[in-house]
């Protein structure tokens, strides 16, 4: 029982990272009906931006929670700007083209970021400084949580809550919902659809960057291809929850994280990556619109 609870704690922590990444997929899909395949690479860039930020703030020599927070926020901001550039330079020009062009563009951007990353950061793994020394907190006999895991959880929850408030209760958030419902009707309200799309990319990228920094805090080896697998799995998580649906992405991410940790613990670490695809196949067979998705016909 305690093993199970421990796995659950680990799974939920890991799942909240997937959830943060999945939110970006689902928001961009909701607005543009585009699968942004470069999104996992933004997670990678987020980790590297965090690495640079820790150097600027000398966070490795003299770690403190305030500096860790600064590193997180700087990385989120820089990645949001990168997300904006990618949208403006790569996706906007093909927005009116057939969807296949956008898909190919997305794959191209992904390759560009990965190989550009090798060029700029180097192919060998870099060490992310330990911004917060690890401590273990016992919850129950046999069940413990590290302070780093707690940070991952708390930061994810705060970000998701902030996103929810933003989308549901602010003027721009409502405009975002309007655009995701119908571009034409949104423009008739005086909403600049282009601006909302840009904001969506920025928010999605900032969340993925936060995930990158949070993961780097715990497993400090970062390299340019580190975004591929988590990106793919977070995409599956978004599909699982119902792509385009924000709460769905959170639930999908948690399910994915827990499933992965359970499979690793109870079956074999060999199946760790396979479970994502098993889940994808199962959901596509059983409920293709996802857990929260409405079975609506795709509008083109």
């Amino acid at each position: 029982m305690s093993t199970f609870l421990q796995q659950l704690v680990n799974g939920v922590t890991w799942g909240s990272v997937y959830a943060l990444i999945a939110l970006g997929y689902t928001m961009v899909y909701g607005i543009l009906r585009l699968i942004n395949f470069a999104h996992g690479d933004i997670y990678m860039l987020g980790a590297f931006m965090g690495l640079y930020a820790s150097r600027w703030f000398h966070a490795a020599q003299d770690p403190s929670p305030v500096k860790a927070l600064l590193v997180l926020l700087t990385s989120m901001l820089l990645s949001a700007l990168i997300g904006m550039l990618i949208e403006r330079l790569a996706y906007k020009p093909v927005r009116k083209s057939p969807r296949l062009s956008a898909l190919i563009t997305a794959i191209g951007v992904s390759l560009l970021l990965e190989n550009g990353g090798v060029l700029v950061f180097g192919a060998d793994p870099k060490f992310f400084p330990q911004l917060i020394p690890q401590k273990t907190i016992a919850l129950l006999p046999g069940v413990a949580v590290s302070n780093q895991q707690l940070i991952v959880l708390v930061v994810s929850i705060v970000l998701m809550f902030a996103l929810r408030m933003f989308v549901l209760h602010t003027r721009t958030g409502k405009a975002m919902q309007a655009v995701s419902h119908n571009h034409m009707a949104a423009s008739l309200m005086g909403i600049s659809v282009d601006r909302i799309i840009t904001i969506t990319f920025m928010i999605g990228s900032a969340l993925a960057a936060a995930a990158g920094v949070l993961v780097a805090l715990q497993s400090p080896k970062i390299e340019p291809y580190m975004g591929i697998m988590p990106g793919l799995k977070a995409f599956v998580a978004a599909v699982l929850g119902g792509i385009g649906n924000i709460p769905g992405a959170v639930v999908g991410g948690l399910v994915m994280g827990v499933a992965e940790v359970m499979v690793t613990g109870y079956l074999s670490p060999t199946y760790r990556d396979a479970i994502a695809f098993v889940l994808l196949i199962v959901i596509l067979l059983v409920r293709p619109a996802g857990i929260f998705g409405k079975a609506v016909t795709e509008k083109v």
Partner: peptide
């Protein structure tokens, strides 16, 4: 607009 286009989920 034609077809009303209200934001159904709002």
């Amino acid at each position: 607009p034609e077809g009303r286009m209200v934001f159904a989920n709002l």
